[in-house]
Simulated scan of single mutants.
Amino acid sequence: MKTILVLFALVAAVVAQKEPWCRCGIFINFDDEQELVYTLENIIIDDCVASAEACKTGCAAEINEFTNDGDLWSLTSSGETVGQAICTKMAAAEHHHSHHYIHNRNVYGYFGLCAGPWEYADVKSQQMLCCEDGVHAHCHN
């Protein structure tokens, strides 16, 4: 009985030490999948149960700050457009499915609470994203 109580206490201690996290990402919808194309800094939250709204609003604010409220032609702190930052990531060889050409795709902001699924953060780009051989380009129909 004492062994079971000690084991229970150890499991409870390990579970209590898990640090909650909130991840923020930018996605593009393709015909057959949704793909994470850019990740941003994690948001600090208190716990994995009561912090869903804090995670969502924190990620929305971070994504809106990075994209200047969804403007893909806005310049990032490194001097490239938001769209170019995404196109560069999409064309990189280490990206899951490197995409050199993207035509007329909206960009969406999502949040992920702890080990849960990605959820829409009510953030959408102002313009469609187009990448021509990894270079951010104006979209033409």
Rank of each mutant, 00 (worst) to 15 (best):
H103P: 02
F8L: 15
K89M: 06
A13T: 13
K124Q: 15
Y110E: 02
G25N: 00
K56Y: 02
Q126Y: 05
I4G: 00
F111Y: 15
T76Y: 08
F27N: 08
D31R: 12
I43P: 01
V15I: 12
C87V: 10
F27P: 01
D47G: 15
A121R: 00
G112N: 10
T76S: 13
D133I: 05
L113R: 03
C139Y: 09
I28K: 08
S125R: 01
M1T: 14
E80L: 09
E35N: 07
V123Q: 12
S51T: 04
T76K: 06
G25D: 03
D69C: 06
V37K: 00
E19Q: 15
S51N: 06
C59H: 03
H99V: 07
C24P: 00
S98L: 12
W21T: 11
N106E: 09
S74P: 07
A13M: 07
Q17T: 09
H138I: 12
H96Q: 10
F30V: 08
Q34C: 04
H140N: 09
A13P: 03
A12R: 07
C87N: 09
I26P: 00
T39H: 03
A92C: 07
K2T: 13
E41S: 08
D32N: 10
T88R: 06
F27K: 10
S77N: 06
F66R: 02
C48K: 04
G134N: 11
G83M: 06
V14S: 08
N141C: 09
P117K: 12
R23E: 10
A16P: 01
N104D: 11
E80C: 04
H96G: 05
T88F: 03
Q17G: 09
M90F: 05
E132N: 15
V6G: 05
D71I: 10
F66I: 03
W21E: 13
V107Y: 05
L40I: 03
Y110R: 03
V15L: 12
I63E: 01
M90I: 04
L129A: 11
F30A: 09
V107P: 01
K124W: 09
D47F: 05
Y120F: 15
V15P: 00
V11C: 14
W118R: 07
A52I: 12
T57E: 13
G109I: 01
F66M: 03
T88V: 07
L75T: 10
C114I: 06
N141D: 15
Q126F: 04
H96A: 11
S77I: 03
D71Y: 08
L36V: 02
Q127V: 01
N68Y: 07
G112W: 00
E65M: 11
E19G: 04
A50N: 14
C130H: 06
G83Q: 06
